[in-house]
């Protein structure tokens, strides 16, 4: 008898759990869901919070991380309430990703560029200062370099071996892993340019980084890179400008081609290692998820991402008025990214 009762109770509990799950699937999601680049995350979160505080009728958007690649993968899973509405990305979407998106039914990919970010090389404050060039970094990081006219496995162990102007310090370079958009910029703007100065290495061979433990790839956040620098005092890390800016008491920044990175030098293009930041909006969700369009337009407001805004304080390099206007116009006209 007792057994029967408990069996019944069990059945009721399971049925209740199942019906609860079905009923949630039916109700509409009311909060904008964002995921992606950890470089964009701080900016995106600040805007989300301000948005929630300013518009009382909308919920505060939820911002997840996962790297640019991870965010775009989630974004391209399909259309529907349990897929994200916005993918943050610190690089432009790739052709393959657009094709994958379209295949899964996400055909209205709206690209929104909202500013620039600089990538800096920084070392511990109690160590020597670095004056780098793309060529030096390439020589320190590549799998193969040219010595005496011959292509050999990278023999350099100290920065002073690469060039006598550099400090006599062990080469350890802490760089973001390939799930980060920052990695692509590091390769394009530093490694590839450095590679061009070495005629013998071409094309894909430029991307071959040494595998003897002197290059450390970090899949997590910049705090992990910073922790690495705490453990290995000689290491030089790759950071976003805003991260460096908030930890200036622990890090010192290296110049690249003699230019020190700052909001001004990156904004003017003088400092070479910078990139635009993006987020991608799912057009199919615009009329379904409340606040999605408003969030995007709020983001592009001058008070939010322009000069003197909160985001500039947080380390974003703003776009000028004209650029911002263009991006907003394109978004409002729903200009879709094509697979090419």
């Amino acid at each position: 008898m007792t057994m029967n009762v408990s069996k019944k109770a069990l059945g009721v509990a399971i049925a209740a759990a199942l019906s609860a799950s079905v009923s949630t699937a039916a109700t509409a999601r009311e909060t904008v869901q964002i995921a992606g680049s950890s470089t964009v995350l701080p900016f995106s979160s600040i805007v989300a919070e301000e948005f929630g505080n300013t518009y009382s009728q909308f919920n505060t958007p939820v911002v997840g991380s996962g790297g640019s690649g991870g965010g775009l993968r989630q974004f391209c899973q399909g259309v529907g309430e349990n897929t994200i509405d916005i993918a943050n990305s610190s690089r432009a979407i790739r052709g393959g990703e657009v094709a994958n998106c379209n295949e899964n039914g996400v055909s209205e990919i709206l690209e929104v560029m909202f500013g620039y970010d600089g990538i800096v090389f920084a070392s511990r404050i109690d160590r020597a200062e670095f004056e780098l060039t793309p060529e030096y970094v390439f020589k320190a990081a590549a799998a193969q370099v040219v010595v005496d006219g011959e292509l050999v496995d990278n023999p350099y162990t100290r920065w002073s071996d690469v060039d006598s102007s550099l400090p006599d310090q062990e080469i350890v370079l802490v760089i973001p892993a390939s799930n980060h958009g920052t990695r692509e910029v590091f390769e394009e703007k530093v490694i590839h340019i450095g590679c061009e100065s070495v005629a013998e290495v071409e094309g894909d061979a430029c991307n071959n980084l040494r595998g003897d433990g002197r290059i450390v790839e970090i899949a997590g956040d910049y705090t992990e890179t910073l922790a690495r620098l705490d453990a290995q005092a000689d290491a030089v890390g790759v950071f976003g400008l805003s991260f460096y800016d908030q930890n200036r008491d622990r890090l010192q920044v290296a110049t690249v081609d003699g230019v020190s990175p700052s909001l001004e030098t990156i904004g003017s293009g003088e400092y070479p290692v910078s990139r635009p930041l993006f987020f991608y909006v799912k057009g199919e969700h615009l009329d379904v998820i409340p606040g999605l369009a408003e969030y995007t337009e709020f983001f592009l407001n001058e008070m939010v991402s322009g000069y003197g805004s909160l985001l500039e304080d947080a380390g974003l390099i703003p776009m000028d008025e004209e650029e911002r206007g263009q991006v907003l116009e394109q978004f409002q006209a729903r200009t879709v990214v094509s697979p090419e």
Binding site: T31, I34, A48, V62, G64, F243, Q246
Partner: peptide
């Protein structure tokens, strides 16, 4: 994810205590 609302039902997005520790540990304002 970064969530700035207190969830009022288990269906709403939310953080959790151990995850919050993980997120703060990764915050750039060390």
């Amino acid at each position: 994810a970064f969530v700035a609302n207190v969830p009022s039902t288990p269906f709403e997005q939310s953080a959790a205590l151990p995850v919050q520790i993980y997120l703060w540990q990764g915050n750039e304002l060390r």
